[in-house]
Amino acid sequence: MSHDPHSPHPSSPVPPPHIPSWSVSALPHPWPPDEEPVEEPVAHARDGDPAEYEGDLPTRPLRRALPHRARGHHGDLRMLRRAYRRQRRVATLAALGYFVAFLLLSAYEPSVMTRPVTGGLSTGLLLGLVQLPVTWLAVLLYEYTARRYVDPLAARVRRHTPPDPLARAAEGEGLVGPGR
């Protein structure tokens, strides 16, 4: 397996007590440990914040292949991937498709584009300028569908993923700062 050379050395100074020792090891792989993560802990935790269960994790890193992972997590991931893919594809194809159609019409059928519509504006100019309020609507629609369909799935998947060891390492470094 390839290492990310950016992870801290095992010989770095003693990490502060609330960062579990397993995350300071040299293995940055982000998949969850083999055991099911213990139930969402203490009362003061924010909802869905998996960083809270850090104290309960095993102290040695576990390295198993994908099929042994928790089933629920895998199913959630698949649903997330599907929702995400659908949203992305629809949004991109709609936006890009409209624009490519506009370009092709402008280039190869200029007679369609230059028919005057209102006042001095031609069809092409009007279609082009109308793209701006349509942009705004598209953005709003995207945000709505993301919030409604994708975000809840993502939150579920995130609950099962341990926090980013690289980001934690950076926090650790920041703490150690001037003492180095």
């Binding site: 960083a51 995400y84 980013d164």
Partner: peptide
Amino acid sequence: DRVEPRILAGTALPR
């Protein structure tokens, strides 16, 4: 497959 959860869902920030 290992990195995908992070790409799609991100991770919660450490407290």
